[in-house]
Computed example of a mutant assay.
Amino acid sequence: MRLVSHPVLCNYYLTYRCNATCSFCDIWERPSPYVTLENVRQNLRDLKKLGVRVVDFTGGEPLLHRQLPELLQEAKKLGLITTLTTNALLYPKQADRLRGLVDMLHFSLDSPVAEEHDKSRGVRCFDKVMESIAIARKLGERPDILFTVFEHNVHKIRQMHEEICQPNDLVLILNPVFEYNTVDTGDRLSEDALRQMSWWGKQKNVYLNDAFIQLRRDGGNHIEDPICRAGSTTIVISPENKLVLPCYHLGLKDFAINNNLYELYHSGEVQKLVSLEGRLPACEGCAINCYMQPSFAVEVTKYFWRALPSTLKYNWVKGTWKQLL
């Protein structure tokens, strides 16, 4: 049973540029412009009209955009929930300007050991994350630690939780690694790793969407009976001001928005691609978190019920449940 028929999330790529070279990501390899304030302002109005509730300002590294505070202010004026994930290299310099503008602020951290985290990111940034935590807390912000979990670092969850998150009263978000395109993300997560993550997800101030675990046990999305609803739940906008379908990672086709996002999304050509969500050959086995999360939320399936407790828990802790009512 479908609960919501309109898009609920926008993944807004401010730029593909990045000041890190993460081994499990290829976005930073792409040439890219930056979005313009004028385009964002118009697109946000159309996103609101389409029913979108959450805008994830992403990249690349979103803090590279010099007008980021202004972009966030435009979203907040419309009552949209804002999310942002950063490697924290630039956060100390921009923290004051970002204060109060990000509802869900995530600092990426893949190991509680500086050398290990810096190696995975291709640049020294562990110390900047620690500095950013201190600054954010002093400003009254409530950042989360986004921990991308691989087979090789799953055993570091306890140390991350006890040494970094608990002392700073931070939520630890467990983000199971996913495969896409030709990016080498390492071996698939073992059953033991999945069990460990599932156990940690039930602990205080730890967030894990348990539907991610179930989906991996089920072999990901299956095109004959798809769980993915990326096209109908998520609007993807590129730095070139194009609507990307069916999702960023597959990116079969893009459409110039030209200040016409609302009408463009409802056009026959776009809706034809939307209707193929989860059914394209490349969708087989997909378990990409950023598209599965909204997919789980709009339709009553076993994944909906697996995702519900952790979703309620996180939004209660963060206080964002009020904005979702």
Rank of each mutant, 00 (worst) to 15 (best):
R2H: 05
L3T: 07
L3F: 00
L9Q: 12
L9R: 09
L9S: 00
N11W: 14
N11I: 11
L14N: 02
C18W: 10
P31W: 04
Y34N: 07
E38T: 06
R45S: 07
K48T: 12
V54K: 13
D56A: 12
T58C: 03
R66L: 13
L68V: 10
P69D: 10
P69L: 08
L71Y: 13
Q73N: 10
E74V: 09
A75D: 07
L78P: 05
L80K: 09
T82G: 03
T83D: 05
N87Q: 14
L89V: 12
Y91G: 02
A95G: 02
R97M: 02
L98D: 06
R99G: 03
G100Q: 10
S108V: 03
A114L: 01
D118Q: 08
K119F: 05
D127M: 03
M130Q: 15
I133Q: 06
A134P: 00
L139T: 13
E141W: 08
P143Y: 08
I145W: 13
I145M: 01
F147K: 11
E151M: 00
N153K: 03
V154M: 03
K156Q: 14
K156L: 15
I157E: 04
M160Y: 10
H161N: 09
L170R: 04
L172E: 02
P176G: 07
N181R: 15
V183G: 03
V183A: 02
G186S: 07
L189G: 01
S190G: 05
E191R: 06
D192G: 04
A193V: 01
L194G: 05
L194E: 08
K202M: 14
K202P: 00
N205M: 09
N209M: 06
D210K: 14
A211D: 09
I213C: 01
Q214S: 15
D218Q: 07
D218K: 13
H222K: 11
G231V: 04
T234V: 02
P239R: 07
E240C: 05
N241P: 01
V244M: 11
H249P: 00
G251S: 14
K253R: 14
D254T: 10
F255N: 08
A256N: 12
N258V: 00
N260Q: 08
N260V: 05
L261T: 11
Y265C: 00
Y265E: 01
E269M: 09
E269P: 02
Q271S: 02
Q271Y: 13
L273T: 10
R279Y: 11
C283A: 13
G285C: 12
M292V: 10
P294D: 11
S295P: 00
A297D: 12
V300I: 14
F304I: 12
W305H: 15
K313Y: 15
L325W: 14
